[in-house]
């Protein structure tokens, strides 16, 4: 074979190799994004599970806060039933706000604050709150990397051919997104 044929074969092999690498990178990132998404779900579900326990415990001490209990319980039900993303997001935000209020109210009841069960629940809750925040953070980090790869040359050519689409960031409406734990030291 003449030299030019070898050069062409070499160039094609290089291109195919680079294409395979980029494709695998896209697949890996997409899997991480999906994983991140289900991780958020896991943590949100853990929070749903904690709410009834917390409400029961606080109820025993803070009898005057009926309205607040109802608000949190209702938000939880709405979040579980939510079909579409915007509905769920607003319900989750209501839960977050309600739980913060609930824990703030608890400050006024010394007996409750000394209750071992309450303290354990409080730790579980702030742990779960920060895990929700961290899983969102992980998800958004991965989305950013995937979107960057899909948007930049030459990986955008492959992304278009193999139908990889950009994902949406998980936006948090809560402006007070510091470390998720500041409220309950």
């Amino acid at each position: 074979m003449p030299t030019w044929a070898w050069i062409v074969i070499g160039a094609v092999a290089l291109l195919v190799g680079a294409g395979i690498l980029i494709h695998n990178r896209l697949v890996a990132l997409r899997t991480r994004v999906d994983n991140g998404w289900s991780q958020i779900d896991v943590q949100l579900r853990r929070r749903y599970d904690l709410i009834p326990n917390l409400v029961e415990t606080v109820k025993g001490y803070a009898t005057h806060e009926r309205e607040l209990f109802e608000k949190v319980t209702e938000a939880r039900a709405r979040a579980i039933d939510a079909k579409a993303m915007p509905d769920q997001a607003s319900a989750e935000n209501m839960i977050t706000a309600g739980l913060r209020q609930l824990l703030a109210v608890a400050e006024a009841y010394p007996d409750l604050k000394a209750n071992q069960n309450f303290l354990a629940l409080q730790e579980e809750l702030s742990g779960t709150e920060s895990k929700i925040a961290y899983s969102r953070q992980f998800y958004n980090d991965q989305v950013m990397r995937l979107n960057t790869l899909i948007g930049s040359f030459p990986s955008n050519l492959l992304a278009r051919t193999f139908d990889f689409s950009m994902r949406e960031f998980f936006d948090i409406e809560d402006p007070a997104r510091g470390p998720a734990t500041v409220e309950f030291p």
Binding site: G36, A120, G127, Q137, F138, D141
Partner: peptide
């Protein structure tokens, strides 16, 4: 050690 475990788990999630 619930606090320590929660923090390790949370940050592992963040780090993937």
């Amino acid at each position: 050690q619930p606090r320590l475990h929660n923090i390790v788990e949370g940050l592992s999630i963040a780090a993937g």
